[in-house]
C-alpha cells in the first residue's frame, strides 16, 4: 500500500533491546495496559513496539483494599497490590490473545520470594509467544517482595541470577527509584545476567484526606506516577545509561512524543508509556506517530540516531 510506495520517506523506528527486535521503541508499561485486550476496542495493538503485561505471580492475587488510586498534582498514586490472575490462568487465558496481537509480548514477573520469581519465570519459559520477561524487583505496594528485592544490589543481582539460570528468555530488570544509587543496582543486575534494565518504577508517595484525618489510599502509601515524576525519571535514565553496557528502557511520566524523545536523548533505546494510557488510551500510538514525524522533519533515517545523542 502507500507505505510501500513511500518507503524511502518513512524513517526506521525499529530498535533492538539486546536480543529483542522491536518494530518501534514504544511499549505499553506494566500495570497500565492490563493484558492488552482491554485496549483492543480503541486501538490497533499491532502498531505498538510491544506490550508489557500486568505483573504475574505464581498464585492469583486479589490485590489491596480500596481506595486504590488517588490523583495528585500532575500525577497519581496507586496501590493496586499486584492483583493478577496468576501464572497458570495467564498462560491459559491471556496469552492466546496477546500472541495474536502482532506486537512483542513482554511479561512482567513478580514474587514474594526468590523461589516465586524463579518458578513463574520457569513456567513462562515453556509458553510460546513471549519475547522477554521483565523482572519486577521494584513494586512499592506489597509488603513482601517487590521493592525489597530491588533496593539492595546484592539481592537484586541474586534474583536476576536465579531467574537467569532457569530461562533462555531475554531478561529486563525493572528498577525502583526509591534508592540512593540506582546506577549501582543497574550495574549489579547487568553482572547477574540481565539483558536490559527498565526504569523508573513508581516513587513511594502518600496522600492524606485532612478532613477525615485518614490516608487517601487503602494501602496507606502508594506509587507515584505521571508527569510529576518525569524529571526524576530522566535524571535516573541518564545516570544509568552511562553506568551500564546493556540497553536502558526509559519510563516515568511520558505523555507525548516530545517526552519520549527526551528519554531517548538521555540514553534510553526504548520507552514505556504508563499513566498516559489512562488519560488517552491511544497515547502509545500517538507517540509512535509523533516520533515518526519528528524524524522525518529532522531528516533522520533511523530513530537510533537519537539514542544517547544528548550533548552535555
Amino acid at each position: 500500500m502507500s507505505t510501500v510506495l513511500s518507503k524511502k520517506n518513512v524513517p526506521d523506528l525499529s530498535i533492538e533491546i539486546g536480543p529483542i527486535h522491536l518494530k518501534n521503541p514504544v511499549l505499553a508499561a506494566s500495570g497500565t495496559f492490563g493484558y492488552g485486550q482491554e485496549f483492543e476496542a480503541v486501538m490497533d495493538l499491532s502498531r505498538l513496539g510491544g506490550i508489557v503485561t500486568k505483573a504475574i505471580t505464581l498464585e492469583p492475587r486479589l490485590g489491596n483494599p480500596p481506595p486504590r488510586i488517588v490523583e495528585t498534582a500532575s500525577g497519581m498514586l496507586n496501590s493496586i497490590g499486584l492483583a493478577n490472575v496468576g501464572v497458570a490462568a495467564f498462560v491459559r487465558d491471556k496469552m492466546p490473545f496477546l500472541r495474536s496481537c502482532g506486537t512483542a509480548v513482554i511479561v512482567n514477573v513478580a514474587g514474594r520470594s526468590m523461589e516465586e520469581y524463579v518458578e513463574v519465570a520457569r513456567r513462562l519459559s515453556d509458553c510460546p509467544g513471549i519475547h522477554a520477561l521483565e523482572i519486577n524487583i521494584s513494586c512499592p505496594n506489597v509488603q513482601e517482595g517487590g521493592l525489597a528485592f530491588g533496593a539492595d544490589p546484592k539481592v537484586a543481582a541474586a534474583v536476576i541470577g536465579a531467574v537467569r539460570d532457569v530461562t533462555q528468555l531475554p531478561l529486563i530488570a525493572k528498577l525502583t527509584p526509591n534508592v540512593t544509587d540506582i546506577a549501582g543496582i543497574a550495574a549489579a543486575v547487568q553482572e547477574a545476567g540481565a539483558d536490559a534494565v527498565s526504569l523508573i518504577n513508581t516513587l513511594v508517595g502518600m496522600a492524606i484526606d485532612a478532613t477525615r484525618g485518614r490516608p487517601e489510599l487503602g494501602g496507606v502509601t502508594g506509587g507515584l506516577s505521571g508527569p510529576a515524576i518525569k524529571p526524576v525519571a530522566l535524571a535516573m535514565v541518564w545516570k544509568v545509561a552511562q553506568a551500564v553496557r546493556i540497553p536502558v528502557i526509559g519510563m516515568g511520566g511520558i505523555m507525548n512524543a516530545g517526552d519520549a524523545l527526551e528519554f531517548m536523548l538521555a540514553g534510553a533505546v526504548a520507552v514505556q508509556v504508563g499513566t498516559a494510557n489512562f488519560v488517552d488510551p491511544t497515547s502509545t500510538i500517538r507517540i509512535v506517530e509523533g516520533l515518526e514525524d519528528t524524524l522525518r522533519e529532522r531528516g533522520m533515517g533511523s530513530v537510533k540516531e537519537i539514542i544517547g545523542a544528548l550533548e552535555v
Binding site: 482491554e38 488510586i69 496507586n78 499513566t275 489512562f278
Partner: peptide
C-alpha cells in the same frame, strides 16, 4: 483511572 478495566 482508565475506565477500560486495565488499571484495577
Amino acid at each position: 483511572a482508565c475506565g477500560l478495566g486495565a488499571c484495577l
